[in-house]
Amino acid sequence: MHATVDAFVDSTRALVEAVATAGGEALGTLPTPVPTSVTRMLVSLRGLVDQMPPLTAEIDVVVRELHAKRLSIEALQAELATLDEQLEILERSLRPVVAWSRQWNRLRRSLTDALPTGEGTGPAD
């Protein structure tokens, strides 16, 4: 950006000098306020450019931020993959417990159905 502005300032200065030379030959002399105004404009423009941070620094910051976000996404994906593996292992571990629970409920029902349900069939006191 600085190089572009410097090139712009130099080409504007050359243009002003060329116009002053051409106009000076035709009119005699270019009035003093014109070169002074152009010089002030160029100085102001250069000052404005000097106040701006370099564009490459801003782009570098954005690129570093994007890279950091990608790294955090990769880390999150790794955590999710690990959690998925843990849940799969837990699910496989619980399958026998679920099967045993169902068998126990069937056994309990079959025992309840097989035993008589009378009040006098309990143990004697």
Rank of each mutant, 00 (worst) to 15 (best):
residue 66 L to R: 08
residue 40 R to W: 01
residue 30 L to M: 09
residue 56 T to G: 06
residue 45 L to R: 04
residue 50 D to A: 15
residue 110 S to G: 05
residue 115 L to Q: 15
residue 89 I to T: 00
residue 26 A to V: 05
residue 109 R to D: 13
residue 47 G to E: 13
residue 24 G to Y: 02
residue 47 G to H: 11
residue 94 L to P: 02
residue 107 L to K: 08
residue 54 P to F: 07
residue 40 R to S: 06
residue 13 R to V: 02
residue 66 L to A: 09
residue 94 L to S: 03
residue 97 V to Q: 11
residue 78 A to E: 07
residue 99 A to V: 04
residue 81 A to C: 00
residue 100 W to T: 08
residue 91 E to Y: 03
residue 17 E to R: 10
residue 28 G to T: 01
residue 43 V to I: 07
residue 99 A to I: 03
residue 111 L to N: 11
residue 57 A to F: 00
residue 116 P to D: 06
residue 99 A to R: 10
residue 84 D to S: 03
residue 55 L to A: 09
residue 67 H to A: 06
residue 61 V to Y: 15
residue 8 F to S: 15
residue 73 I to H: 03
residue 99 A to Y: 01
residue 105 N to R: 13
residue 51 Q to M: 01
residue 16 V to T: 11
residue 105 N to V: 14
residue 120 G to H: 01
residue 67 H to P: 00
residue 96 P to Q: 02
residue 89 I to F: 00
residue 73 I to G: 05
residue 25 E to A: 12
residue 34 V to Q: 05
residue 123 P to N: 11
residue 72 S to C: 01
residue 77 Q to A: 09
residue 15 L to P: 07
residue 21 T to Y: 04
residue 98 V to E: 09
residue 74 E to I: 06
residue 18 A to K: 15
residue 49 V to F: 03
residue 41 M to P: 09
residue 106 R to W: 02
residue 123 P to E: 15
residue 12 T to K: 06
residue 106 R to Q: 04
residue 112 T to Y: 13
residue 12 T to Y: 09
residue 1 M to L: 14
residue 121 T to D: 14
residue 62 V to I: 06
residue 118 G to T: 10
residue 100 W to S: 15
residue 13 R to C: 10
residue 72 S to D: 02
residue 30 L to A: 04
residue 94 L to W: 08
residue 18 A to T: 10
residue 32 T to W: 02
residue 81 A to D: 00
residue 65 E to P: 00
residue 27 L to W: 13
residue 117 T to N: 15
residue 65 E to D: 03
residue 63 V to E: 08
residue 4 T to K: 12
residue 25 E to F: 03
residue 48 L to E: 00
residue 10 D to Q: 13
residue 18 A to R: 10
